[in-house]
């Protein structure tokens, strides 16, 4: 039953993705991306991941704000048409070949609803579930993994996040600093 529901939701996401990529209005494309993220959040709710669902919802709102910031202040010049015909055909053929390989690869995975932790008793997740509360004192096993068992991983990933945000600030800041000091090297942007 839940499989049908998730399939329908993913199908809706595919339709939203195609609309987002094919529409000529950038603002409606951004709104379609927001719809995709919200449906993904509903999917997470149904498969027992409410933490992920709430995070996804918050991040989706921020995503829409950032993307609208990127598109709305500039003139919405509609750029329609794809690349030239030959390259487009080759790309689509390669994507189709990739699809065939992917179907082959998915035959080797565990079935949906019967994951690795229920078939391999020595999987690390089983230990986290069995001893997580006694060892860390957190009754949400997710936070026990994030902040205790794999805390160093979390630290490294947050470093990546910090580097990304810092890079964005550095890229956006160059122009205003040049304007302030009045120093130009013949390469000013306008």
């Amino acid at each position: 039953m839940i499989e049908t529901l998730i399939s329908m939701l993913i199908f809706f996401m595919i339709i939203g993705a195609i609309i987002a990529l094919e529409t000529t209005d950038l603002l409606s494309a951004v709104i379609s991306i927001g719809a995709i993220g919200s449906v993904a959040s509903i999917c997470y709710l149904f498969v027992g991941a409410p933490d992920i669902a709430s995070t996804q919802l918050v991040v989706e709102v921020l995503t829409i704000i950032i993307l609208i910031r990127a598109t709305i202040r500039h003139d919405l010049i509609t750029i329609d048409g794809d690349r030239e015909f030959f390259g487009l055909t080759i790309t689509l053929a390669l994507i189709f070949v990739l699809f065939l390989f992917g179907i082959k690869a998915f035959n080797n995975l565990f079935d949906f609803g019967n994951p690795a932790i229920s078939q391999l008793p020595e999987a690390p997740s089983n230990r986290y579930l069995a001893c997580g509360f006694q060892e860390t004192g957190a009754n949400n096993i997710l936070s026990a993994i994030l902040f205790d068992y794999r805390g160093l991983d979390t630290f490294g990933q947050l470093c990546v996040l910090f580097a990304g945000i810092w890079g964005a600030f550095a890229i956006m800041r160059v122009q205003s600093r040049r304007k302030k000091t009045g120093k130009g090297d013949g390469n000013e942007d306008r």
């Binding site: 991040v59 950032i66 910031r69 996040l161 990304g164 890229i171």
Partner: peptide, 12 residues
Amino acid sequence: VIGLGILALMVA
């Protein structure tokens, strides 16, 4: 969350 940071970089 990292996806949000990468998105900010791409939009910049």
